[in-house]
Design a protein around this nucleic acid. Structure first.
Lengths: 207, 207
DNA sequence: GGTAATACTGTCCATTTGGACAGTATGCGC
DNA sequence: GCGCATACTGTCCAAATGGACAGTATTACC
């Protein structure tokens, strides 16, 4: 019951190859076409069998939503090491990883997106961002590179120390709004070095 | 003209995150819904702009067929090293790679699927598979693990040497059909060790 | 001032797509 | 012989989807 028939395996392989080759997930009719079925119900039937056997996952009603469970699980489990800094280093060269204090393994599921080479993490110190619900001890995951959008929290370099600020636009000009009383409320963003945009927060509670 | 606007970047990021999180590519209406657009044309318009700027690729008319060009290119370019054996080793333990004579870098495009840990390559010697259009000097890419289907070419271990054979089923029993006169035409498949199923052939011509 | 690009709302429509149903045939275990 | 899973053909349909078109407003650029 668990093992797949030849035909089911063939269809599973076909889907895997299509997706791996960067093409969109095949529709039922495309599967039927590839195997020469005259009726797309045949493909639908096989797909149903594969779902029943736990090999495939479907978002019911959604077009091209087939997913191989093994790949999904592998993707979810795939932990990627993200460099974790106490403070952001001045430069962003290729020696970035060596400057990292340590690395934290994260999974796609835990931060909601797939980390890239431009992804890094910061340990938050102080309650400067409590207004944005980012607390002392939290780990924020940031992405280096993309232009911040208004309302997003960014990490900026001030006095060789990184500080989290909110990116705002006033009268068409970009500013960094400090949520920490130690710093002026509005700083023109071009006076600072924006190191990254906050994309996720990890908070560990004591047990 | 080349650079993306904030909104376009946001939509690009949204697509990237959805796909990276293992969800199916969002439809135009899902994009509109996520950003609060009342009209899905707004999303369609942005998608069109992103395609025009070369960031996105679409299969016209196909549902959920958006693809990030950068990822597609990265995927296509990503060369994976596949262990290449002169002959298949007896075991398939974790020391497999060390037993490999060498490695060949292949891309997804060149073999049509994404290599896994179970993918390996063999250098073909002799014209035993000429009937199947696999020639002396060819490199065949095989996948270890999947149950072969009738008509597929498999690599089997005979006398500690690997030989390519065609997998056939006769009267419900699996056999290996040798295309090499040195061996008996039909061998019960359970007498042999099937090392892998041929998934691709690479042939280099002299210049 | 005009043109173009951006950034939408709103509507209509042909196609694509998945789901359900009816039906046929085969092989397998009991 | 019966039930069940497999492996299809063929048809109908509603929902999902992309594409085209008509508008509006804003901003940037020449």
């Amino acid at each position: 019951m668990r093992s797949l028939t030849d035909q089911q395996q063939a269809i599973r392989d076909f889907i895997e190859r299509e997706v791996a080759a960067g093409r969109p997930c095949p529709s039922q009719r495309e599967i039927a076409g590839h195997f020469g079925f005259a009726s797309k119900t045949a493909a639908a039937c096989h797909v149903r069998a594969l779902v029943k056997k736990g090999v495939l996952a479907v978002d019911a009603g959604k077009a091209r939503s087939l997913q191989l469970v093994s790949l999904a699980r592998a993707n979810r489990r795939a932990a990627v090491e993200i460099p974790l800094f106490g403070s952001i280093p001045a430069g962003f060269g290729r020696d970035r990883e060596e400057e990292a204090d340590e690395c934290i393994p994260v999974t796609i599921d835990s931060i909601g997106f797939k980390p890239t080479r431009n992804t890094f993490a910061l340990r938050v110190s102080g309650d400067s961002m409590m207004g944005k619900h980012i607390l002392d001890g939290d780990i924020v995951v940031l992405e280096h590179g993309p232009e911040p959008r208004p309302g997003q929290v960014v990490a900026a370099l001030i006095d060789r120390k990184s500080t989290l600020k909110t990116f705002v636009v006033k009268n068409g000009k970009p500013f960094l709004k400090a949520e920490n009383p130690k710093y002026p409320d509005l700083i023109p963003s071009d006076e600072l070095m924006i190191q990254g945009v906050v994309r996720a927060v990890l908070r560990r509670f004591e047990k």
